[in-house]
Write a protein that binds this DNA or RNA. Structure first.
Lengths: 216, 216
DNA sequence: CATTAAAGTTAGGTATACCTAATAAAAAAT
DNA sequence: ATTTTTTATTAGGTATACCTAACTTTAATG
């Protein structure tokens, strides 16, 4: 009778993340993100619907309030795990995502509380994403991708896409980490690179990469 | 093709523990410990046999070298997790077993290393059981249950059965924790209680409980 | 508007790990 | 030595979560 909660959690977490870029989440997008076949996802979505965690809207899947709440719990556990890994266990920020993907399903509410307390209730994960609080409240700021800044505009890095270790390593090597100020010196035309200035140094940054960095 | 490694790990861990009290482990004992039906265990044991982790001897199951090695890895992760929970995250020793049972399957070799390092390579779990080292070497001491001490004999508590939170809480309240010296004042006949002296205080301790405490 | 392409779902099938009920084998007790 | 009891295994069945291949629906385009 008891479901494999970690699969459910994985789906809800993915849906939550994907809906932020595009509201109702398509089966195919979800399948791609979860690295599963479309029919598998189609089937599982039906099950989640039956459990009242998700519903089908026009062109895709949406979370119900209950689904959203569970998703945020998982995200809280994920991001707290990441902070545990970096701040206490000495991991680098590029090493923690996959590790946290496993941990997030093995953490009880009690452990969640202990981690949060030991870390001093951190507000964000190591990549700058906000950690939902116990009640699922999530601090949201109006941010834009670095790739949308115009020449001579400045921004403060708030967060960075966290799922690609190689990119994270690269960004850290350039000093492109949260709370750092970046200035866009030039924007090359036809989707070309941005020339950015970080802590006195200049780098050419591809648009694709720059779009993964959110600034305020 | 890929098995649910956490189920395999759980079985091997149980077999490893049970074989210490009674060498070839019986299906029924294993089923009882894992809280599963005998046929389920019977079937799974066959699968583990097929994977070369286990073999059937006269009256029960034994671990192969590979199985033993994997079991010790799981036990290492379990006990390191327990130390993480108590020493870093502020849990009490009676709260960590179940938590660690979940964590042990979600910990990568890298995380294992980071935990061990952050804790200063602890030799034992919070209940006094040795933590196997990276190569699977396990410090073994000749110990006996407190229940086997005769009147006026003394012992130093080395470890305590860790799976029952209530008992752990009770023992801690009496000061019956690792490294503490206990003196048996009297042993009541017909399987009656032991009167023990711990840090100046005297307690009557049931035989059953005393048998869960190992001393040297 | 008809065709092609993309997206989604059914249909049918697999593996894992569990279950109960029934049976077989081994051990203990009379 | 036979019966009883315990222990182990087969047989048959369930649920979960995945798959591929085929089909259907929806959208995009000539």
């Amino acid at each position: 009778m008891e479901a494999d909660t970690s699969r459910t959690e994985e789906y809800l977490e993915s849906i939550y993340k994907l809906q932020q870029e595009q509201h109702p989440v398509s089966t195919s997008r979800l399948a791609e993100h979860l690295k599963l076949s479309a029919p598998s996802v189609s089937e599982m979505v039906k099950k989640l619907t039956g459990k009242g965690l998700v519903f089908q809207s026009e062109r895709g899947v949406c979370l119900t309030d209950e689904g959203k709440s569970l998703a945020k719990k998982v995200i809280r556990r994920h991001r707290l795990s990441e902070r545990l890994l970096t701040d206490i266990l000495g991991f680098n920020w590029d090493e923690v995502h996959d590790e946290a993907c496993r941990l997030e399903h093995a953490i009880s509410p009690e452990m969640e509380d202990h981690i949060a307390k030991s870390l001093g209730n951190p507000r964000t994960c190591p990549h700058g994403h906000p950690i939902p609080d116990k009640d699922g409240k999530l601090a949201k700021e109006k941010l834009k991708p670095l790739s949308e800044l115009k020449a001579r505009e400045k921004g403060i890095i708030v967060n960075v896409f966290e799922e690609d270790p190689k990119m994270l390593k690269y960004l850290a090597s350039l000093g492109l980490i949260p709370d750092v100020c970046v200035k866009v010196e030039e924007v090359a035309p036809f989707g070309g690179p941005l020339i950015v200035c970080v802590a006195g140094a200049r780098y050419a940054l591809g648009r694709e990469v720059a779009s993964k960095i959110k600034v305020k």
